[in-house]
Computed example of a mutant assay.
Amino acid sequence: MESNEETNSYKDYYTVLEVDYDATDEKIKLNYRKLALKWHPDKHKGDNAVTAKFQQINEAYTGVSNQI
Rank of each mutant, 00 (worst) to 15 (best):
Q55K: 12
I68S: 05
E18G: 11
D12H: 14
L30C: 00
Y14K: 02
K34P: 02
I28G: 05
S9K: 11
A60C: 01
K45T: 05
D20Q: 12
E2W: 11
M1K: 05
Y13P: 00
L17E: 14
H40L: 01
V19I: 03
T62A: 07
D42K: 14
S3C: 13
Y21V: 01
K53M: 15
I28R: 15
D42I: 13
E6L: 13
K11I: 09
A60L: 03
K34M: 12
L37I: 10
W39C: 06
N8T: 00
K34Y: 09
T51Q: 13
Y21M: 09
N58W: 04
T15I: 11
W39T: 01
A52L: 06
H40V: 04
D22Y: 12
T62M: 10
A36I: 07
E59S: 12
E59M: 11
M1I: 06
A60P: 03
W39K: 11
A36L: 13
E5T: 09
N8C: 13
Q56W: 07
N31W: 02
W39H: 09
E2T: 09
N31V: 03
T51A: 05
I28P: 04
T7K: 12
E5V: 03
A60N: 02
T51Y: 14
Y61S: 06
D12M: 07
E18R: 14
N58P: 02
T51P: 00
W39S: 15
K11W: 09
M1N: 04
S3P: 00
N8L: 13
L35C: 10
Y32Q: 15
D20S: 12
W39Y: 15
D47T: 04
G46R: 14
N66G: 07
I68W: 08
K45M: 06
S65Y: 03
H44R: 04
I57P: 02
D12P: 06
P41L: 10
P41R: 13
T7Q: 07
M1S: 13
I28S: 08
D25P: 04
D12W: 09
K27H: 03
D47K: 14
K34F: 10
A52D: 12
V64P: 02
V16H: 02
K43P: 03
E59T: 05
Y10R: 12
I28Y: 13
T51W: 10
Y10N: 05
K29T: 07
E59I: 03
G63S: 05
W39Q: 09
T51S: 13
A36M: 02
K53N: 11
S3A: 06
K34H: 10
Q67P: 00
Y61C: 03
R33S: 02
K11R: 10
N48C: 02
S65F: 07
M1Q: 08
D22Q: 07
V64S: 12
K11Q: 11
E2C: 00
I28M: 06
P41F: 14
V64Y: 10
L37K: 12
L17D: 03
L17A: 00
A49N: 15
K43A: 12
H44W: 08
D20W: 04
N66F: 07
Y32S: 03
K27L: 15
I68N: 04
V19E: 04
T15M: 10
K34L: 15
A23M: 08
K29L: 08
T62C: 01
A60I: 13
I57A: 00
G46C: 03
W39M: 14
Y13W: 14
K53H: 12
E59D: 04
E59H: 05
